[in-house]
Design a protein around this nucleic acid. Sequence first.
DNA 1: ATGGTAGCGCTGCTA
Length: 263
Amino acid sequence: MKLATWNVNSLRARIGRVAQWIEQVHPDVLMLQETKCKDEDFPAQAFHELGYESVHFGKSQWNGVAIISRIGIEDPRAAFFDEDPAEVSECRVISATCGGIRLYSVYVPNGRSLESEHYQSKLAWLGHLRDDLEATCSADQMVGVFGDFNVAPEDRDVWDISQFVGATHVTEEERAALQALCAWGLYDAVRELHPDEDALYTWWDYRGGSFHRGWGMRIDLGLVSAPLRSQLRFAGIDRDARKGPQPSDHAPLVIELDLESGN
DNA sequence: ATGGTAGCGCTGCTA
């Protein structure tokens, strides 16, 4: 079973690269973030032609999340359990059951700055995500929460922590909110398999040649429940997908489990 | 030197 997550920074701008990547990697399920399109503009047909079903939640040129699966999609739900998706203004979470695994594609709010009301919303959003798991899942089931968390879990998950004084993504509050989410019963797949490896970045700023300088952050995560943790076989970042013309500023994260995908 | 890039959509915001 191969699961992946990728913040594509506009699916309309990236559909060619995403389709090519799917053909090359053949994930069983791909979680997308920042599709930046409305549901009616979502290129479901392109994924269908590759053998994938899809569900998408997007309303505008901002945010937007999707789940692309070649092992089926059951019980899809846009937004959180206690929200009406029609009333939600920012489309940041969609979940579905694929191959018996409850999977989430999440795009955690950026937070903008420590003084911003959006920073408080970010902390609250992470709490809401935990509430959703609490209300709808059990930690002894197969659950995976994949996406762009906009939090670097540890200092070693950024290229130079001294550059982040007074910045978001690295504060104790954000890390505590992420920890509280994990305390529900989730494990950071990359850290499980690479406990001592640094520079496992998934995002690099477009500006200033950050990618080639190695100035990145590990903010895209695959969090898995205990029944999946025991089946972890591989976790890696496809940095090649960050190279070449018109890349997303994020690279895809790929997680492989010792489970049969069923087809 | 207080910078830079990309996407969206059309002026400046978001990341």
